Computed example of a mutant assay.
Amino acid sequence: MLVDNNLYALVPTHHYGGIKGNCLVIPRMHYENVLDIPDSLGADFFRATRRLAQAMRDVFQCEGISTRQHNGPAGDQDVWHFHLHVFPRYSGDALHAGRKVPYNFEDRIEWAASLRAALG
């Protein structure tokens, strides 16, 4: 979906707490966690996150946006390649209490296409 020379974004294979349309922003080069990311990628991540946030507001009419990123075992990291979660949010959505649920393939494709169109 969102692609440049340094990173890309995608709708992952699962969502949390029934909140659909979440995305991951991922660097093309391998960096294990935030401690490995070069400073030069900071602006790229911020720009991508801001663009996704606006697309989510336009597509999903969400009330807010949350981001999440995990580092190290004690930080709940379970994928050993840096990535940033971006979530559309709604009042009372219980994101943090929700369980991880797989998307069905068609929904995932639909959310990605809607966001891609909003990104321009």
Score class of each variant (00 low, 15 high):
Glu32Asp: 10
Asp44Ser: 15
Pro12Glu: 02
Tyr8Trp: 14
Ser66Glu: 06
Glu32Ala: 05
Lys20Glu: 04
Asp36Glu: 12
Ile19His: 01
Ala43Arg: 15
Gly17His: 03
Leu24Thr: 03
Phe45Cys: 09
Ala55Arg: 02
Cys23Ala: 14
Arg50Lys: 13
Leu41Gly: 01
Arg57Ser: 06
Phe60Val: 03
Asp39Gly: 09
Arg28Gly: 07
Arg47Lys: 14
Tyr8Gly: 03
Leu35Asn: 09
Glu32His: 08
Ala9Leu: 04
Ile37Met: 14
Ser66Ala: 08
Arg47Asn: 14
Arg50Val: 15
Leu7Glu: 02
His15Leu: 02
Ile37Ala: 06
Val59Tyr: 00
Ala48Cys: 12
Gly42Glu: 09
Ala53Lys: 03
Arg28Asp: 07
Arg57Ala: 04
Leu10Glu: 13
Ala9Lys: 02
Ser40Trp: 05
Ile19Lys: 03
Gly21Lys: 00
Ile37Thr: 05
Arg57Tyr: 05
Ala43Gly: 07
Leu35Trp: 09
Phe60Leu: 15
Asp4Leu: 10
Val59Met: 05
Asn5Phe: 09
Asp44Arg: 10
Ile19Thr: 15
Pro12Arg: 01
Ser66Thr: 10
Asp58Ala: 15
Pro27Leu: 04
Lys20Tyr: 06
Gly42Leu: 10
Arg50Ala: 10
Ile65Val: 15
Ile19Trp: 02
Met29Asn: 11
Met29Asp: 13
Gly21Tyr: 00
Ala48Ile: 07
Ile19Cys: 10
Lys20Gly: 04
Cys23Gln: 00
Gly17Tyr: 00
Ala9Gln: 03
Phe46Asp: 05
Tyr31Gln: 05
Ile19Asp: 02
Gly21Glu: 01
Ala53Pro: 00
Asn6Val: 12
Ser66Asn: 09
Asn5Val: 11
Ala55Met: 11
Ala9His: 03
Asp58Tyr: 05
Asn6Thr: 09
Gly18Ala: 08
Asp44Ile: 07
Val11Leu: 04
His14Asp: 05
Asn6Cys: 13
Arg50Met: 11
Val34Leu: 11
Glu32Val: 15
Phe45Pro: 06
Ala53Thr: 12
Thr49Asp: 08
Glu32Cys: 11
Asp39Glu: 10
Pro12His: 03
Phe60His: 03
Ala43Val: 14
Asp39Leu: 11
Val59Gly: 01
Met56Tyr: 05
Asn5Leu: 12
Asn5Thr: 12
Val25Phe: 02
Arg47Val: 13
Asp44Glu: 12
Cys62Lys: 00
Arg28Glu: 08
